[in-house]
Design a protein around this nucleic acid. Structure first.
Lengths: 152, 152
DNA sequence: CCTTGAGTTGAAGTCGACTTCAACTCAAGG
DNA sequence: CCTTGAGTTGAAGTCGACTTCAACTCAAGG
């Protein structure tokens, strides 16, 4: 079994495009040694880092936060399963919160479907405070509570 | 009670920035009449459209799909509560699917935290086929199933 | 009548996560 | 030795959903 992987190999094994891997490296999420001919060679442990990155993204965490999380890994030794478990566990709260908000939206939507009101005031549905983390792009504006006013 | 709203009024009541309202209009999501001085005047019914847009975005639907959905509304008359209920109901499946994927991710993450493996192959966690609709930006690449290979 | 705030437009900028491109060099197989 | 595929770089492009800007006009109140 080979010690290190070329970028093409890491790409195939991780399912992440080479261009994305180079991008992650620029952001400091992963690292690679170089051969005499300046090609990247990845330690096998980098595979786990890439796995962590992709999983974290599914949880809705930005690359910048993932970078911060990865920095908490010990850099003297190869991270242990426990290190990875600790990191993964740190996203648990976010995931729960995301699921909670989405479930609430579903319940509210069902209520709204019942009454057909779709009013921003009467329904709990339209609840600007409840920003779903990382749902859309751009800055999520903090909205002033709309004045009590009916819709139509 | 006034018949129509200025863009500033609609913005305050809907919690959506005037620039976003103009953007929605360019995309054909909402409409406005014009005064002699070329200012927009919104019918009160537009408030409900804006509410629908924001709710749909929380479900993870793109503006383009929202536009398509809005086009199915009757344009002869002001949409009835039933019309809105039908539209809202059409997102239900997506919302369920999103919640399902997130819940699966949570369960898998718990399993992973238990074993600390964080392996792309052993865990069901890293499951490229299961793209969470509209989670990140950019094209979601369809990944080839990674070869059976251990991580470290 | 004057000022001020609200509105108008088209063009350009922003943000995050990448991809694409051009112009190279290097590695491996026949 | 030659070819071909894989790798390298920096710069620019892309996508969706907006925001910001400059240079205006218009509306309302005192």
């Amino acid at each position: 079994m080979q010690e290190s992987l070329t970028i093409g190999e890491l790409s195939v094994r991780s399912g992440v495009a080479p261009s994305a891997l180079r991008y992650y490296e620029r952001l400091g999420l992963i690292r690679a040694d170089r051969t005499g001919g300046n090609q990247r060679r990845y330690a096998r442990a980098e595979l786990r880092r890439v796995a962590f990155i992709r999983i974290s993204q599914q949880v809705g965490v930005s690359l910048d936060e993932i970078r911060a999380a990865l920095e908490s890994l010990p850099d003297a030794r190869t991270p242990s399963p426990q290190d990875w478990a600790r990191l993964s566990a740190s996203w648990r709260g976010r995931l729960d919160e995301k699921i909670r908000l989405l479930s609430k939206l579903r319940d509210d939507l069902d209520g709204c479907i019942g009454c057909g009101c779709l009013s921003m005031q009467r329904c709990t549905l339209y609840n600007p405070g409840d920003a779903l983390g990382g749902e859309g792009p751009g800055a999520r504006l903090m909205l002033p509570r709309p004045a009590a006013d009916e819709v139509a």
